[in-house]
């Protein structure tokens, strides 16, 4: 029996879809059977982030409305045997599916897969309620900004009210140099405010833009710092104890200078 994990944030644009794609790919890369479910009906994006947009035939609404069998709607990734996507519908809206239908869908999927990872839409309305309906665990993504942390706090309250206890936090797009300068909230500051467990810290990384352009998750790129962070997150999800990576390493002018002179 697999595990159903929802990835949520409240605020849009903090990296839910990127996180879903990378965690899913990371888990599949270590040989696990993973299905990623895009519940952002009307604004589907997980397909393009994964580079699978040309292969969609059926979507989540087709499945819940019985237009096709679940198996028919699942898209197999070309890179990893175990990775699958259940895409959202693009021409419908959030009310085309109900929380009960998603709960039933998740129950079916977790019989087949080790991990069912649900990409939640932004907001706290129907789309959010759909996305969390079948989940057993929740991951909250935030960035070190007032607006994103505020929304994360609200989401944590709503998850608690929905009996999804102990959500885990991913802080995305952290800029270590700005933190050092005192111009960005640190991990400790954010944990202090939200009071939940930290699952991972993903540094700001241009590679995310580049890999997303190509439709290849950064987690596959050994040179990407964000990719490394996501590999660590994926390992932590499987229960491995992985220390936080040294965020200050290999960044900054001083390091480059030292490296140039030969101090490191």
């Amino acid at each position: 029996m697999g595990e159903v994990i929802v990835i949520t944030s409240g605020k849009g644009g903090v990296g839910k879809t990127t996180t879903t794609a990378n965690i899913g790919t990371g888990l599949a890369a270590s040989g696990l059977k993973v299905v990623l479910v895009d519940t952002d009906i009307g604004l589907r994006n997980l397909d393009v982030v994964l580079g699978l947009e040309n292969r969609i035939v059926y979507d989540i609404v087709d499945v819940t409305h019985g237009n096709c069998r679940l198996k028919q709607a699942l898209i197999k990734d070309k890179r990893f045997e175990g990775l699958h996507l259940l895409p959202a519908a693009q021409t419908k809206d959030k009310t085309s599916v109900t929380p009960d239908q998603i709960r039933e869908l998740c129950a079916q999927l977790k019989k087949e897969f080790d991990y069912v990872i649900i990409d939640c839409p932004a907001g706290i309305e129907q789309g959010f309620k759909n996305a969390i309906a079948g989940a057993e665990k929740a991951i909250v993504v935030t960035t070190p900004e007032v607006s994103a942390v505020r929304d994360a706090d609200r989401i944590i309250g709503l998850l608690e009210a929905a009996e999804l206890h102990n959500p885990k936090l991913i802080v995305n797009r952290l800029r270590p140099l700005m933190v050092k300068r005192g111009d960005m909230m640190s991990i400790d500051d954010i944990i202090d405010i939200l009071a939940i467990d930290l699952l991972g810290v993903v540094p700001e990384d241009e590679m995310i833009v580049i890999t997303t352009n190509k439709g290849e998750p950064a987690v596959l790129d050994n040179n990407s710092r964000a990719g490394q962070a996501y590999r660590n997150v994926a390992r932590r999800i499987t229960g491995e104890d992985v220390p936080l990576m040294d965020l200050e390493a290999e960044t900054g002018l001083m390091y480059k200078l030292k490296k140039l002179i030969g101090f490191k």
């Binding site: 900004e145 007032v146 933190v179 300068r181 005192g182 111009d183 909230m185 640190s186 500051d189 405010i193």
Partner: peptide, 8 residues
Amino acid sequence: SSSKNVAK
């Protein structure tokens, strides 16, 4: 008054 403290 660093912007981080203002944010917090």
